[in-house]
Amino acid sequence: MKIVVCLKQVPETNDVTIDPVTHNLDRRGLAGVMNPFDKNAIELALNLKDSRDDVQVVLLTMGPDDYAESLREGMAMGADEGVLLSDRAFAGADTLATGYVLAQAVKKIGDADLILFGRQAVDADTGQVGPIVAEFLHQPQITYAANLRLSGANEVTAERLLEDTKQTLVAQLPAVVSVRSELNTPRYPTPRNIQLSFNKPLTTWHHDDLDLDDSRLGQAGSPTIVTKVYAPEPVKRELTPLTGTPSEAASQLITALKQRQLI
């Protein structure tokens, strides 16, 4: 059984600022780390690997060469190998163009039974790439899985938590699954496995290694354009006092919360 886990590298903190002169995002000096939610997807893959002998876990990411660090970290957690998709032609991709290249890479990796994603990246917060890859691969998708188990030779059963409903879903493999962070607690890479991860294969694929339609790559292949980036104004709150007896005040609050559709 082959599991591909797609991951992203993100800035180590979300405390980014806007350059007052250029109005561009100032990411200088911010180290990259693996998107924390992606560790839940790796942990799920490793749990499946721990439960049977024939599981191979391949990590896949698209980005500049330093994204290899996140692949290495995932291999230190226990994944078997890493594939980095790195090429100038891929730069500036939005979720659609990213999903396209990832889907083509999954095809090249071949025979993937499960393709796993974290729930979303903590920087862009879209959670879109999993479903996009599922569509491009014509595979069923289970998003926001709260747990997942192999329920047959070629089948997984998962629970998905919607806002107030719990769904039980059964998917025939291959399938794409994105996981909730509550699914598990990712293991720490042990110091020894960090060292040994440097003996595991990490492959870089460039543009020519994949079967790609150039019009669907990078900026050209991205329908969306960011036109403006700015720091939000601090939310100005106006305090509405709740007055009278506790009972009167509580009733005012309930009216207000109903208006806001919070209850």
């Binding site: 879209t126 999993g130 479903p131 969306t224």
Partner: peptide, 22 residues
């Protein structure tokens, strides 16, 4: 919502258009 964020990108990929999240 979880449902919206699951269906919308699937539709986006079918339509090959842009989707802005959240």
């Amino acid at each position: 919502t979880i449902t919206g964020r699951s269906i919308a990108p699937r539709l986006q990929a079918k339509l090959q258009t842009g989707l802005t999240a959240d």
